[in-house]
Amino acid sequence: MAFSPYKGIYWLGVALFAALLVAGVVLSIGQSGHPPDLTTNFVLDAIDDGVARGDFTEATARLRMAAVIHPQPPLLVKLVEVAEKAGDRESQVFALRKLTSMRLTEDPQAYLKLASLLLTDPARTAADLPEIEDLLRESLGRNPRNAMAHNNLAVALLYQGKREEAARHFAEALRLDPSLDSARRGLEQTRRPS
């Protein structure tokens, strides 16, 4: 190899690679009996370990990183679940936004859940309402018989001053679920003079 200007680089690469492999072998001794595995399974195993220990914050952080690198529906759905347990609203919104904005899911609950999180966000502004309205319409497009989606759409419409349409959706929510007090109160509100 005396002919090559790459000789030094080559041996540096070999040395670095060998050092990493030795470190990895030392670590893997502690994992003897662990079978060769699929990459994503290994990652999910690590996350599940955190969930099993009840460390939802660590599991959420790992899932969030996994979902940032590889935004696949199973990882995003799992992130929504674990982040909910960790009380991490921002990670839930991140995962649901990915799922809905890229149409990676047809689950109406994903659209409803994101809209509900945004609607109840203390930092919500008037500028967020059209997005929330769109999400709820997407959810109802997939399942028009969800009383909560009608109720929340009515709330979003009411905040935007669209009282007549809001009243129709509050009424529909009540028709689907007569026990939904928030829809009853909302309907009454639309009948009051503004």
Binding site: G24, V25, V26, L27, T39, V43, R62, I69
Partner: peptide, 27 residues
């Protein structure tokens, strides 16, 4: 193959990186 897919990612965790990014990015 075993060294690359299983051992190398573990090696990166010895210098402080998390398992998640090392496994995805080594792959």
């Amino acid at each position: 193959g075993y060294g690359l897919f299983r051992v190398l990612p573990l090696a990166f965790t010895t210098v402080g990186f998390d398992l998640v990014e090392t496994f995805f990015l080594v792959t």
